[in-house]
């Protein structure tokens, strides 16, 4: 019950942030920046907003009832697909050619999807969401490479870090419970360390007044890692990761605003 209260509080906070982002991006479109980037970004955030409202309404109307095929997850899929489209438009398809990074991200997403299935047992829902999420992650990684958000060496370290992260989760699932607690704590530490790194990079990029493409790539990377941390965490860490995820969202808005104003 305590965690339910925590979940609702966190969702209300996220709804507040998403409403702010939705209104700001709508105003951006109305100010005449009605290019496809603010439109798709606005629609993506609207999908997330409706998804959160759906979850709260469902919790209030049918407390404790399981959702067989979560319609609210379609809203989250909308965010990932539309954000991936925004990245494709900003960076350009020709500069986002798939490479070894795409393959590693694909493996990463496949393992995460496998873990979701192992945890929930809902394979259809998890496979659909896993494909969409994997697509979004590969788009982010390709944008990070194209905009040179990280050096080649840093990208290699990030790949090692990510594979280590999923390996820890797999091992944690396989070993018996008392021993797995330490590993669970270790991968939470790794996830949040990555998240802090991404947020600091994003803040520094804004402070250094980098170009809008760079800002979009780095802010979307923060959001992607925040959602990743959220999706692999159990309550109450999930709620904490979700709050951090809400903090990363306005950075995406500011980057999109910068892009719209520049263009």
């Amino acid at each position: 019950m305590e965690y339910n209260f925590l979940s609702i509080t966190e969702q209300i906070l996220q709804i507040g942030v998403l409403t702010f982002i939705f209104v700001r991006s709508l105003l951006l479109i109305k100010r005449g920046y009605n290019t496809v980037i603010p439109v798709f970004f606005c629609f993506g955030m609207l999908g997330f907003l409706i998804s959160d409202i759906y979850w709260i309404v469902h919790t209030v109307m049918f407390p404790g009832k399981r959702i067989p095929f979560a319609v609210n997850l379609m809203g989250e899929n909308a965010v990932f697909l539309l954000c991936a489209t925004v990245l494709m438009i900003v960076v350009g398809k020709e500069r986002m050619k798939p490479g070894i990074e795409t393959l590693i991200t694909g493996i990463f997403a496949a393992v995460i999807t496998g873990l979701w299935i192992a945890w929930s047992g809902e394979w259809l829902k998890d496979i659909i969401c896993g494909i969409v999420y994997g697509y979004f992650l590969t788009a982010v990684v390709r944008a990070v490479k194209a905009e040179e958000v990280m050096s080649k060496k840093a990208r290699h370290w990030a790949a090692v870090f990510s594979l280590l992260f999923v390996a820890m989760m797999v091992v944690q699932l396989l070993i018996p419970r008392p021993s797995s607690i330490y590993l669970e704590k270790a991968y939470y530490f790794v996830a949040f360390a990555g998240l802090i790194f991404c947020i600091v990079r994003t803040v520094l990029a804004f402070k250094d007044k980098k170009n809008s493409n760079y800002l979009i790539a780095v802010s979307f990377l923060s959001f992607a890692w925040a959602t990743n941390t959220m999706y692999v965490s159990a309550s109450p860490v999930y709620e904490f990761a979700s709050i951090v995820c809400s903090i990363t969202m306005p950075f995406m808005l500011f980057a999109v605003e910068r892009k719209a104003e520049e263009s």
């Binding site: 999908g47 409706i50 319609v71 809203g75 899929n77 909308a78 539309l82």
Partner: peptide
């Protein structure tokens, strides 16, 4: 992805109404 993103948005809106 753009087309299916918009479709997913419509589904969520419709789902919220039905709920």
């Amino acid at each position: 992805p753009g087309v299916f993103g918009c479709l997913a948005l419509s589904m969520t809106y419709h789902g919220l109404y039905n709920l």
